[in-house]
């Protein structure tokens, strides 16, 4: 692999199916955290109910794919209600605790050996995307866009995904410029003040939790469709934190923040992996094996990413699209 291929591969990943998945997850989190100030640390749970509803309904119970997608979205609504009813009246940190615990509990349940027949244990569910592959209009040979190439099905998923992202961005733009969005932002700033003005804060927080959760389920469903597989390891706790990283890089409470964040995050996550992989391989590597061997190189991307996240939080806490003035006010 040449250095040029390292670059093109990174670009392919930056717009690829995985970037779509994390972009959607971050859009959901943006409604929770960015606009409403809800600390949801269990976005993986919303992704999981979406993904598993589709995987299990189609593979285990032989249901129609499209119907299963609808059920997956409804399942996210139910999960949001279950998490929200007891916690949204309490202080913000209770939601954080409940969501992170729920995500991990759900993951353990779905991956349990005793539910192997229904959910497939650690292997999860797979091969449930036939209905979608059948309607794939992209030529079988894939798509060649000059320096980057995609396989046919991947490109189809990306197409659906980015169109969905675009539609959601328009929807969120419309929502957030409206009085409804103003109430959410008011709640983020000070919910008692909003209460004192006659707004039912609990109801608005619930609406935000449901909306962001449903978008999270879309991310889980896209993830399942893209890889034709849903497994417990796809929805570990770090999934949620990757989504937060995407959001914070791009800028919270900005409509396009998650989109830009997802592109950058996946470009660097894969670019760094390929770079260090290449730099430590071969007979005369760029980085001498005394400093780093190829096994160690695979960890470098997360180390560098952690460093970048720290630097962003210190020097540009509002993210790339954020407004510094707004954040300066926060400290007063």
């Amino acid at each position: 692999m040449s250095w040029f291929e390292v670059l093109t591969n990174a670009i392919e990943q930056a717009v690829g199916p995985q970037a779509v998945v994390y972009c959607l997850a971050a859009i959901g989190l943006n409604i929770h955290f960015g606009y409403t100030g809800l600390l949801n640390f269990g976005q993986a749970a919303f992704m999981m109910v979406g993904g598993y509803a589709v995987g299990a309904l189609v593979q285990t119970w032989g249901q129609n794919l499209w119907l299963s997608i609808l059920v997956g979205l409804l399942a996210a609504v139910v999960l949001a209600l279950i998490l929200g009813v007891p916690t949204l009246r309490l202080r913000a940190d209770y939601l954080a605790i409940a969501t992170i615990a729920a995500a991990e509990a759900l993951r353990q349940i779905l991956g349990a050996a005793s539910l192997n027949d229904q959910f497939g244990g650690q292997d999860g569910r797979f091969g449930f995307t036939e209905a979608l592959r059948d309607i794939n209009p992209i030529p079988e040979g894939g798509v060649d866009l000059g320096i980057i190439q995609f396989r046919s099905y991947d490109f189809f998923i990306m197409l659906i995904g980015w169109v969905l992202v675009a539609l959601l961005c328009v929807f969120i733009y419309l929502l957030m410029r409206s009085p409804w969005g103003r109430v959410l932002k008011g709640i983020r700033e000070d919910e008692d003040a909003v209460r004192s003005l006659g707004k039912n804060v609990y109801s608005y927080k619930m609406q935000a939790l449901v909306l962001g959760g449903v978008i999270g389920a879309m991310a889980g469903i896209m993830s399942g469709l893209a890889t034709s597989n849903v497994a417990p390891s796809d929805f570990a706790t770090d999934t949620t934190f990757f989504a937060y990283t995407v959001l914070l890089i791009g800028g919270a409470a900005r409509v396009l923040g998650p989109v830009l964040g997802a592109l950058i995050f996946w470009f660097f996550l894969n670019g760094l992996d390929l770079f260090f992989g290449k730099a430590t391989s071969g007979t005369d590597p760029l980085i001498p094996s005394a400093i780093m061997d190829s096994n160690q190189a695979s960890l470098m991307r997360l180390i560098v990413l952690g460093l970048v996240l720290m630097l962003i939080m210190i020097y540009r806490p509002q993210g790339i699209l954020g407004d510094r003035r707004e954040l300066a006010i926060d400290g007063r």
Partner: peptide, 25 residues
């Protein structure tokens, strides 16, 4: 005082109005 810091003054004011149709989802 509980002003909503990261909303503008006029947005703070508009939030106070009751019975807004645009506040439904």
């Amino acid at each position: 005082t509980k002003v909503l810091s990261r909303l503008t003054v006029i947005e703070n004011m508009r939030l106070g109005a009751t019975g807004q149709k645009g506040e439904r989802f």
